[in-house]
Structure formats: structure tokens, C-alpha cells
Amino acid sequence: MGRLEPHQKNGNYCSAGQLSPLLNDPYYETIGIGTRVWLAGAHGHVYAEGTQHAGGVGRTPDGVPTVGSGTLALTGDMKQMRKEFVRGVSFSGYGVSLALGIGIPIPILNEEVLRRTCVRDRDILAPVVDYGSDYPQNTGNVICHVNYEQLRTGQIQVHDETVEVGSLSSYYKALEVANLLADEIRRGDFRLAAPIAPLKKDTKMKPLLQREPPR
């Protein structure tokens, strides 16, 4: 949704990468429906998969999805939220949206869970997609993949050319949320909850196909 300059001058990416909860638990072993979450300072919970949730997507051998995958629907008491983590945003050419600070604790239940939480930006791949043509026409073309460590440098290589990239998600705020949540857990103020049902791992995105109108 970011602004694109002509001739592949720039690109945009989102996600907090190595701090993103769903990339630290890519198979939803601890995050499920009923999991307690830190939602902008309020103690809320996961009540369903989010819109466009797609658990059954391509993954690296370590399980990290290589395209957009899991999403969450969360609920929490807005009166308990902190205003600096509930922010209205406006993108010219796109519209309005809401930016939220979200933290999800991942209990280390076994070695596998621990191993997956050790994910680093270099292990997380992002597809480079042309939003000028391929994305709106839903061709599925991916120019190449880059990892988040490369994205964090502010420059990536596309077709042997250097393209500047900017982030739409705040890593700085994600770090703040992680530390605030860790403090609350250490103080005993934030209580973890086991999920009551798992998130779907086999769903895929269904594109909206245009059909001829009935005569």
C-alpha cells in the first residue's frame, strides 16, 4: 500500500520480521484460539483466524512461510489500551487504516518451539512482487525473494539494480511491545492461557475470479 515511484525506484515491506509472533511460531503450536495477547496494552485474546488467513502456504525447510500466511482476529477492552499503540493511519491513494501494537507470549514447551523462536531476519524470506501490474492482475509472478536482513539495510537487488526499500511496520515499537510484555509476565501481571482450538494449517487464499455477468 506504500507509494511507488516510477521505474522500480523503490519498494515497501511490512512485518516486524524476527519479532513477529506468527513468524516465531509458524506452525501455530502455542498460538491458537483462546491465546492471551497483549493488545495495545490491554489483555485480550485470539478469537478466530483473521481475514486472509492462509496456513497452507509455501514454507522454508524451517517452516517459515515465504508468502503472507497466518493472521489473527483479536479482541480486547479498548478502555485498557494505551493510546500510543492504537494509531489511526492514512495512506494517500489507499485510504485509512489502524496501526496496533500487539505482543503474544510464546511459552517454550519443547525444543522444537524453542528452535522456531530463534528465527532471525536472515531466515525470513519475502517475495518481491510488481504492484504495478502482476499484483493487480493476480498473475502470481514473483520477481525474486529477499530476506529481512537485506530489507533492513534499506536496499535490495532487483533485476541487478539497487532498489531502496522502506518499512510500513515499526520494528522500534515492536521491540518496545516485546519488552513491555516481558516485564508484565515477569511481574506476574500477564497470565498466559492455553489455546482451546488450533488455527487452521491447510487453508489457502482464494482469489476473487471475475466472471461474465449472467445474461
Binding site: 506504500g2 507509494r3 523503490n10 515497501n12 500510543e84 494509531r87 496501526a99 533492513r152 534499506g154 531502496e164 526499500v165 522502506g166 518499512s167 510500513l168 511496520s169 515499526s170 520494528y171 522500534y172 515499537k173 521491540l175
Partner: peptide, 28 residues
């Protein structure tokens, strides 16, 4: 107070007056 240090502005700033100051915290 309004800046969340997302870094979206950085590529659009021609003289690099806005930049990521610290690679670890990613503060703008």
C-alpha cells in the same frame, strides 16, 4: 510523539535528513 519509527519515510527523503539512526533499535 506521533512518529512510530517505522522508517517508511526514509527512501522518500532526498537529502537523507530522515534515516535509521541505530540498526539495533531501528529508531528514525
Amino acid at each position: 510523539e506521533r512518529c512510530t519509527h517505522c522508517g517508511y519515510c526514509v527512501p522518500y527523503c532526498p537529502p537523507r535528513a530522515l534515516k535509521i539512526e541505530n540498526g539495533a533499535t531501528r529508531k528514525v
